[in-house]
Amino acid sequence: MSGLSINDLKVHFGGIRALDGVDLTFGSSGIHALIGPNGAGKTTLVNAVTGVYAPTAGRVLFDGHDITGLPAHKLATLGVTRTFQNLQIFWTMSVLENVLAGFHLDSSAGFLRGLLRGPALVRRERELTTAALGLLRLVNLEAKANNPADALAYGELKRLEIARALAGRPKLLFLDEPVAGCTQSEKCDLAEVIRNAARESAVSVVLIEHDMRLVMAVSDRVTVLAQGRILSTGTPSEVRADPKVITAYLGTTQSHLAEQVHAVAG
């Protein structure tokens, strides 16, 4: 089968059951949001699927391959990638070079690029640059292609991460709270970028997010996690109407800072 299927996934930290038997599938297209109160296990789920944590039990299958516990670079070759809440940028490279680095797995780039700078290679390099610029246009950064990465604003860097991730032609892309560090006023202009990416790059996006406005605006499906278990799954309107979800979200007034602390603590 295509897409990602998570079977009875458990992650325990000592006595704490961060994930307590999750079964979930993500299809091969569309935007699937993963929401839930603080400590629900959203980031733990992504970390367990992308090899950051070794799951205590359960299996993760992607396009029929067992990918449970595989490290990030192996997942990348299979077409699964992610962003982190913290920025992961090649700071001393330019914006364009950051995206070009995303083409690392493109085998046609060759092991010894430039060893013989024949016309084929020159053409190939030009093609990659064109493709990278196309991705930058998709995330509204084309104008800043030659700027150093460390000269960008936070929201631009988040978009740059998405462009770099798309360069690897992933089939599945996890975005872990992409707007968490953005200011209230702009929200990093991510809604449109995520929608365009999912549509034009034919990638299935899993969006872990707090911001309900963003989630409701872009998602095709929404899954709600609470206390390490799945509370509800459905279209945005179905989930919004689910009484269980409303109960779970009542009284959740924890500050954004508390959420961050919790995420770092795992």
Partner: peptide, 11 residues
């Protein structure tokens, strides 16, 4: 420059 980012792009 960034080992985490590098492994994300498949290195």
């Amino acid at each position: 420059i960034n080992p985490t980012a590098a492994s994300l792009v498949g290195i």
